[in-house]
Design a protein around this nucleic acid. Structure first.
Lengths: 238, 238
DNA sequence: TTCGCTATTTTGTCTATACATTAAATGAGG
DNA sequence: CCTCATTTAATGTATAGACAAAATAGCGAA
């Protein structure tokens, strides 16, 4: 287990910070001191400390020094997996049933997505199945001007989300996550009672400044969950 | 806007990767080529590519080269605000009502949180109010061995979450987000009908390897939503 | 063919040095 | 005591070179 030196230095301080031995606000030794401590060049120490800084564990200020960061973190990394891939990973058969496919323009679309009146849109509605059981309903608008190839795409079987993921890399996205009761239409599509609790994810994506798609997905409670994680290292169990 | 050279190189490739100009699997030029392209030393190129690698945008293999990584799951940054602070931000009066406070050990606790049988726990149950209206119910376990000071804490008015945030900085957390119908007990506490759809956030936090707390929060649908964002720059409207 | 050794390419690490940048600390003048 | 310019200590960036490590690619032998 012969780790590189810069990695050993990084871990030394990561350990001390995570254990609380170095409390938030505490000052770390200067690079000059550390290059003496570890008997190495400054670049090596710098690499270790820079890594801690990009990981958010320390703050570095010129002239002042390096300080253990205060964990003011209110953000966690949330996984947004591809629905089809996730179902397949659980060993279940995935299917998408397209219920509605319609071309319209921004002026005709509902209010959820504020796009220009003239923008040509493709409206899609459908249901995701796992092993033949419906578990998610989705209602989507796609900006055809940004993704003209979508006109030729066929969504019988595979979902529009998967198609978009493979054909249109997005650079920016917003998501709003709420709970909602299934409406009459949604309940019938999902084979549940109206009012049944569902997880609702509304997501808008852009490529650069160009809007790509707006989608509202409704997941039957219990059949789906989002996970989020914060912290160094791998996800843990339990 | 005079960025450092290594940052400019990094952004050049980040842009090309996010825009799709460099597709997943595509090979980037070697460091030798890049140091000629940008007329700089190899360390400068290396710093840029290493940053892309730690960000997960590229994979680097010796002898083989540097390749655009295949994005398996897309991670978004999810906001986890302090409940009390968020309510206050909306100009509403915040209150927390503690309903249950009990000391027990890991052996007696329910299955949701796998802690050692001998671990001393504090069990807390209560309701969050905004302007006198209940909007969230929470059920929490705290590892007293990790946070002995909590025995003396008083949660009439302010929530355990806020107290923990101020007294025990966590370094790692997992969250699971689902929808659920309110149980009879929960529905009565939240003044809604049983089965009413709620957003359910189950979160576990650690400091280093030491478990700190497990909490399950139930939010009345419509009264609360989580937001997530991915991409450069500030959050957008619409 | 297939196995195994070797050569070579590419990234990984480290050094020693130089100068730039920033903001805290200092000190002079009012 | 306050203000503003100067000093200076710390990080930030970059260079040119060296050797290490790993894995592909190619070659030779069984």
């Amino acid at each position: 287990m012969n780790l590189p030196l810069h990695e050993r230095i990084r871990q030394d301080f990561e350990t001390r910070i995570l254990s609380g031995a170095l409390a938030p606000g505490a000052r770390l030794p200067t690079e000059q001191v550390l290059m003496a401590d570890y008997d190495c060049a400054r670049m090596t120490v710098n690499k270790a400390l820079t890594a801690l800084a990009t990981a958010g564990l320390v703050d570095r200020r010129k002239k002042a020094g390096t300080f253990v960061a205060r964990p003011r973190v209110h953000a966690m990394a949330m996984d947004i997996p591809d629905i089809g891939a996730q179902v397949a990973e659980r060993g279940q058969a995935y299917r998408f049933d397209l219920g509605l496919r319609r071309e319209l323009t921004g002026g005709q679309a509902r209010l959820e997505w504020k796009v220009d009146r003239a923008v040509p849109l493709l409206e899609l509605e459908g249901v995701h199945f796992a092993d033949g059981t419906p578990f998610a309903w989705e209602h989507r608008f796609v900006n055809v001007a940004a993704v003209p190839e979508i006109s030729a795409a066929d969504f019988t079987g595979s979902s529009p989300g998967t198609w978009l993921l493979e054909h249109v890399p997005w650079t920016e996205a917003d998501a709003h996550i709420t709970a909602a009761g299934a409406s009459a239409v949604e309940a019938r599509a999902l084979a549940v009672e109206p009012g049944e609790p569902c997880l609702c994810v509304a997501r808008k994506t852009w490529r650069g400044s160009e809007p790509i798609t707006y989608v509202r997905q409704l997941f039957v409670a219990g059949a789906y969950e989002l996970t989020a994680h914060f912290g160094p290292g791998a996800r843990r169990e339990g």
